[in-house]
């Protein structure tokens, strides 16, 4: 169920990338897709009623492994969020420059490249 919602989020993002004309909306759609994937990554490591993967003092590592959620995907998501931020910043900068040059955000009016 929740995996399905996550997939829905990714597909909504992809739909936006494909159909929107406004460059800012395309960037937002990419961000939505990114969030869907991050959510999916966290879900991969999730376990029902799992505890936070923190090894407390006096706790056996084995009990932690048996109880907690998988910490690795959480680390991956942090990295992926940072990468997503870098892409987002670059693309927003591109949008600003595009607006300066073309005076519009509409992709259909940006067609100096042909062939």
């Amino acid at each position: 169920m929740i995996y399905g919602l996550c997939l829905l989020l990714i597909v909504v993002g992809l739909y936006g990338v494909v159909t929107k004309r406004n460059v800012v909306k395309i960037v937002i759609s990419l961000a939505i897709m990114e969030y869907g994937i991050n959510l999916f990554l966290v879900l991969v490591g999730y376990r029902t009623h799992g505890t936070a993967p923190i090894l407390e003092e006096g706790m056996m590592p084995e009990t932690l492994v048996a109880q907690s959620v998988d910490p690795l995907p959480q680390a991956l998501v942090l990295t992926s969020i940072v990468i997503g931020l870098a892409v987002l910043a670059l693309m927003v900068a591109l949008c600003v420059r595009l607006y300066e040059r073309y005076g519009t955000f509409d992709v259909t009016e940006m067609k100096k490249l042909k062939g």
């Binding site: 990338v17 591109l94 420059r97 940006m110």
Partner: peptide, 14 residues
């Protein structure tokens, strides 16, 4: 940072 370059880079980035 000219017209063509920005347009191409946006397409490539998406």
């Amino acid at each position: 940072c000219q017209h063509e370059e920005l347009e191409a880079a946006f397409k490539y980035a998406v």
